[in-house]
Design a binder for these strands. Sequence first.
DNA 1: ATTGATCATGAAACATTTTGACGAATTTCG
DNA 2: CGAAATTCGTCAAAATGTTTCATGATCAAT
Lengths: 285, 285
Amino acid sequence: MNSREGQGDGVEDSPRGRVEMIPAKRRALILERLRREGAAGIQELADAIGASLSTVRRDLEHLVKQGALERTHGGALLQSTERATFEPDVALAAQLRRDEKHAIAAAVADGLRPGQSVIFDASTTVLAVARAVVARRLPLTAVTNSLTTAQVLAEAPAVQLIVPGGTVRPGSTTLVGRPGEEFLRGIHADIALLGTHAITGRTLTETALDVAAMKQAMIAAARHVIVLADSSKFTTASFCTICDVADVQEIVTDDGAAPSVLAELRGLNVALRVISVPRQGRGRG
Amino acid sequence: MNSREGQGDGVEDSPRGRVEMIPAKRRALILERLRREGAAGIQELADAIGASLSTVRRDLEHLVKQGALERTHGGALLQSTERATFEPDVALAAQLRRDEKHAIAAAVADGLRPGQSVIFDASTTVLAVARAVVARRLPLTAVTNSLTTAQVLAEAPAVQLIVPGGTVRPGSTTLVGRPGEEFLRGIHADIALLGTHAITGRTLTETALDVAAMKQAMIAAARHVIVLADSSKFTTASFCTICDVADVQEIVTDDGAAPSVLAELRGLNVALRVISVPRQGRGRG
DNA sequence: ATTGATCATGAAACATTTTGACGAATTTCG
DNA sequence: CGAAATTCGTCAAAATGTTTCATGATCAAT
């Protein structure tokens, strides 16, 4: 009764091929997909990853035990509070689109001029810009509400760094609310670099109200707003609206975005930069 | 694969033999690949480097012990880069008087009660208290002007963390000035934990004006001020004055302080706690 | 210069974990 | 209620981890 029989007999391309991917990366892929879509079915995940249903179930079980997501009949939901702690799998999920983010960040950093005042949003893509700024030794006046970005920028002697302050969102290193939002009202920066959770049609959305409010304050505080969104962000809308695409001046994304999406954005009054990413076999599938 | 093969090519460093790559370079390659991909499998690494699986495993083991990455089944993950961005200076300073600071911090953390509001100053000793708070899972409302302390406290789900904000002092991760100082005026915390650069006679001093001003704001914002000072701090005064010893309610130090200093402090209206440090023949001076 | 100790490397033997498949029990929905 | 889908438990194969050992290089001492 071994499975060998079915294999030798079936000449059709039964996908019995093993996917060479370490479990942690597989779980990270699941998390990333959930963060984009909000929910996903077992079969859909198995198909996307290239693993069997059993494996996907066990991965979900693992992630549930970590508190990162919630199981439903037939699929899984992202844990709404996103209090996903700093577990390895979650940390890896943040790194998944690394090539795209890095390429976008480098392009944006090249566009910054010495002496400008720049607002850095709490976002992994914007964090990559901060790293590029430090590497380039760009002298800037920087404002950020992310503890992580702040620590990166604090290492640059040429950067004058201001943290508006606020309350830390549980499970993250993002500052929201008072006193940061009010402080931003008194700020007039040259540029704001914003990440977003999703861009749908002409609407930028975010998962939480307080984060959206902070981003709105940043938009109001800058003369030129640049939205950094890798191509995975063009998906279904998140919980609450940040603003309309017309409220920002520039959108930077990578060349993985669907042409229809890009065409729709081009019709609006927004500068659209599409960065080509050299793909080097990042993930199979 | 035989190691002999590599002997023919001229490697001037090693006369002959199998040195295809120095271990340090191999590990650097592993780290670089991990930074690119976020994760990597053992076989994949062995293939990329040209070493055997055993060697790659041993390298990973070595890197784990060094804290650079995390092992998973089948591969390795980069240690969460968000936490990996710590200041080398801070790491160094935390090593000095480590036992003393740890003992003081543990004693202070034991004195904190669930639900209290606590102000954490920017200081390595106070940072140690923050670590103890996280380890004890103490539910607190925390306020800090140190980016490092904030990141530590942000990992504790039970801690509500508020960052007053301000400008980062160059070369450090300390926030000073606006808007933090003004925000602190509206705060009334139960406890403030303060470090200091020096205690001379009955005067607390600090090296820079803006840092001293921030500490003064913290003192004004708390009902009970605790100064954490290991015994090396009882020395010559620094540049500018923070306050008088009478302005704080409690001083915690270790038993390495000179008896004359302790006697002088005991004469003032301040609770003085001397923590005995178990010295293990390290004789740190 | 030779010898012996020490260490890194690679390979093999063995224990453990993971994975995919299958059937039975359970749940969902018309 | 009944059909379809889903989940659960189990099992064998494959992959991975762990331990151990032999080989060769480097180094200190004779």
